[in-house]
Amino acid sequence: MTDVVETPEAETEEVVETAVAPLDDAMVRKVIEGALLAAGQPMTVAKLLELFAVDEDREPPAKDLVQAMLEDIAADCDGRGFELVEVGSGWRFQVRAETAPWVNRLWEEKPQKYSRALLETLALIAYRQPITRGDIEEIRGVAVSSHIIKTLTEREWVKVVGHRDVPGRPSLYATTRQFLDYFNLKSLEDLPSLSELRDFEELNQSLDLDDSEKEALAEAEERDGIEEAQTEVAEAAAEGNTESAEAEAEAEAEAEAEAEAEAEAEAEAETSIESTGHDNPVEHTESEQTPQS
């Protein structure tokens, strides 16, 4: 008779799942507001979501919730001296334009005035990008100062995005995210249409610039013209120095060739004299033919 051994049933382990509580919406909003104030630069929705990703005991908020919170905060800023806007690099708090004249008094340095030539160049790059310096000069009808391109690149408003596949491979310029941020634009689609643009002289009148500001703009334009002329003179001088250097090199080469030719001639003459064994063969022959007295 065979004994039957009964095995005890395996004890089942109950896995207790700890529910991860989502962060309270009010706290999400406070974190977003604090981050935007402390960042000192625009922040994207993705960057804001990274702030919640490290919380293991909290479920991070959904992307749609963060977007909705940003829009609610922007709506709540109505009627205040600051606003929340979305620019090319993300969302940021900023002073409203109507309060800027007073707030700007916190800084003693006055905002820089830009010349008409620089603004026209920037506008052409913004609306015709990518564009070369030659294209800009062809449209404006005048040369583009190197100072203007340098200023725009140092401000990080434009950058080189490539080179045109033509002889000389000129650089192609386009605007940057910093350009969008500075002019409160979310994308290039937010640029005003060309039909909305007016002449810069009318723009100055609409801005109601005082005499000192107009003089500053005039001085900036004059400075650009002077620097452009100085650049042309320097380039011409460089070309002249190159031509004179080439002429001097050619003259030196000719002088060296003549000196070598003279040295070869003298060497041949010395060789001929040594082969005859006489210092003056003509006079020696004449002396031999003279009869003795």
Rank of each mutant, 00 (worst) to 15 (best):
Pro101Gln: 05
Asn280Met: 07
Val66Gly: 01
Glu202Cys: 10
Ala19Gln: 09
Leu23Gly: 01
Ser89Asp: 06
Thr290Arg: 15
Met69Ala: 08
Glu246Cys: 01
Phe183Ile: 12
Ala174Met: 00
Thr153Ser: 12
Ser195Ala: 10
Ile136Thr: 05
Val15Thr: 09
Thr7Pro: 04
Asp25Phe: 02
Met27Arg: 08
Ala229Glu: 08
Pro60Glu: 07
Asp135His: 03
Met27Leu: 12
Glu156Leu: 04
Leu70Asn: 11
Asp224Trp: 00
Asn241Thr: 08
Ser89Lys: 07
His284Lys: 13
Asn184Arg: 10
Ala117Tyr: 09
Pro60Ala: 04
Ala261Val: 08
Ala269Trp: 04
Asp208Ser: 12
Ala97Arg: 12
Glu239His: 08
Arg177Ile: 07
Arg140Val: 00
Asp72Pro: 01
Thr231Met: 12
Arg116Thr: 03
Leu185Tyr: 14
Ser206Arg: 15
Gly90Ala: 04
Glu201Ser: 14
Glu137Trp: 05
Leu217Lys: 11
Ala251Cys: 03
Ala218Thr: 09
Ala10Trp: 03
Ala46Glu: 05
Asp165Ala: 11
Ser171Pro: 02
Glu215Lys: 09
Arg96Thr: 15
Phe82Tyr: 15
Ser187Tyr: 01
Lys63Arg: 13
Asp55Ser: 02
Val144Asp: 02
Ala220Phe: 01
Glu243Trp: 01
Arg198Glu: 12
Asp78Val: 04
Lys186Gln: 14
Phe200Ile: 15
Trp107Val: 15
Ile131Cys: 06
Leu197Gly: 02
Leu48His: 06
Pro61Asp: 03
Met43Ile: 00
Ser115Trp: 02
Val31Met: 07
Asp211Tyr: 04
Val160Asp: 13
Gly81Asn: 11
Thr44Cys: 07
Ile226Cys: 07
Glu9Tyr: 08
Leu122Asp: 04
Gln205Ser: 11
Glu108Ser: 15
Leu124Thr: 00
Val166Glu: 15
Glu83Thr: 02
Thr99His: 03
Pro101Thr: 06
Val142His: 15
Ala255Thr: 12
Asp208Glu: 13
Lys110Glu: 15
Gln289His: 07
Asp165Asn: 14
Asp3Arg: 14
Gln292Thr: 05
Lys150Glu: 13
Leu194Gln: 05
Gly34Leu: 14
Ala35Gly: 05
Ala10Ser: 06
Ser115Leu: 09
Glu201Thr: 15
Pro192Trp: 11
Glu202His: 13
Ser115Gln: 12
Pro281Trp: 10
Trp91Ala: 14
Asp279Met: 05
Ala68Val: 04
Glu258Leu: 14
Tyr114Thr: 05
Thr276Gly: 06
Leu51Ile: 07
Glu56Phe: 05
Val103Met: 09
Gln67Ile: 01
Lys110Asn: 11
Gln94Cys: 13
Ser193Lys: 12
Thr121Arg: 03
Pro60Thr: 09
Gly225Thr: 03
Glu235Gly: 07
Val160Leu: 10
Ala267Ser: 11
Glu108Ala: 10
Val5Tyr: 07
Ala247His: 03
Glu228Leu: 10
Ala39Asp: 06
Leu180Glu: 04
Glu83Cys: 01
Pro101Lys: 02
Leu207Gln: 10
Glu83Ile: 00
Leu203Ser: 11
Glu120Arg: 01
Ala100Arg: 15
Glu17Pro: 00
Glu83Leu: 00
Trp91Thr: 08
Pro111Trp: 09
Met69Cys: 13
Ala174Asn: 01
